[in-house]
Amino acid sequence: MTVREIRIYGDPVLRTKCAEITEFDEGTSALVADLIETVELPGRAGVAAPQIGVALRAFSYNVDGQVGAILNPRVVETRGEAVPTSEGCLSVPNLWHDALRHPYARVEGVDVDGRPVTLEGEGLFAQMLQHECDHLDGVVYLQRLTPEERRVAMREVRESDWF
């Protein structure tokens, strides 16, 4: 198990639609272990595989004492109107903006052994589910901002010391 380096906005892997995981082997187990160890650092709610350079459909989470991982997740239900929600991203360091997120989300996928898993929740957990599934589709939260907010955010990205 290893804490993996987070890829930063501009890295092509963050804009790549990830492939389904089809083999549940030692490699898959090692990826899940790395995702969990990486998300367990303070201040992290979720880490998607592309954020550590792996273009596969998997993410780990660490919200309100719930820590785990899900493979091949798909958002199957959202409830409530999408509202501006303060959001940040490890791949877009030190920037927080209001992304449009639904207050409830349900995701279905599988665990490291290929068994069905359902994750659902409200508030921060729902936000994390939507954010991490977006990563697996090559979407960074900046794309969920209103046009005005996105202009501001992109200027901040260009002026940042990490871009």
Rank of each mutant, 00 (worst) to 15 (best):
E5I: 03
R7W: 01
R7M: 02
I8Y: 00
I8D: 03
D11E: 12
D11F: 00
P12K: 05
V13F: 06
L14E: 03
R15M: 09
T16C: 07
I21P: 11
E23Y: 03
E26L: 08
E26A: 13
G27N: 13
A30E: 13
L31V: 09
A33K: 15
A33H: 01
D34L: 04
D34Y: 08
D34V: 05
L35I: 07
I36Q: 07
I36F: 08
I36E: 07
E37D: 13
E37G: 06
T38L: 06
V39K: 11
E40W: 04
L41S: 14
L41T: 15
P42S: 14
P42G: 11
P42K: 14
G43M: 14
V47M: 02
V47P: 00
A48R: 15
A49K: 03
G53K: 00
Y61P: 12
N62A: 15
V63W: 09
G65Y: 05
G65T: 14
V67E: 04
A69S: 15
I70Y: 06
L71G: 06
N72K: 11
N72Y: 08
R74E: 10
V75I: 15
V76I: 13
G80Q: 12
G80C: 10
V83I: 08
P84Y: 06
P84M: 06
P84L: 03
P84D: 03
P84I: 07
S86A: 10
S86E: 13
E87F: 04
C89A: 01
C89R: 11
C89N: 12
L90T: 06
V92S: 01
V92N: 01
P93I: 05
P93A: 08
P93D: 10
A99E: 13
L100H: 06
L100N: 01
P103S: 08
P103K: 05
Y104D: 09
R106V: 08
R106K: 15
E108D: 05
E108N: 11
G109P: 09
D111K: 12
D111L: 05
D111G: 08
V112E: 09
V112L: 00
D113Y: 06
D113T: 04
D113N: 10
D113W: 09
G114L: 13
R115I: 01
T118H: 04
E120H: 09
G123R: 00
G123P: 08
G123N: 05
L124K: 00
L124R: 07
F125G: 07
F125N: 05
A126I: 08
Q127R: 15
M128N: 07
L129Q: 05
L129K: 12
Q130N: 09
H131S: 07
C133H: 07
D137C: 09
D137V: 02
Y141R: 07
L142V: 15
Q143H: 12
R144L: 13
T146H: 02
P147N: 03
P147S: 12
E148S: 07
E149H: 09
R150L: 09
R151Y: 08
M154H: 00
M154S: 00
R155P: 02
R155H: 03
R155M: 09
R155C: 01
V157I: 15
V157L: 05
R158H: 04
E159I: 01
D161P: 01
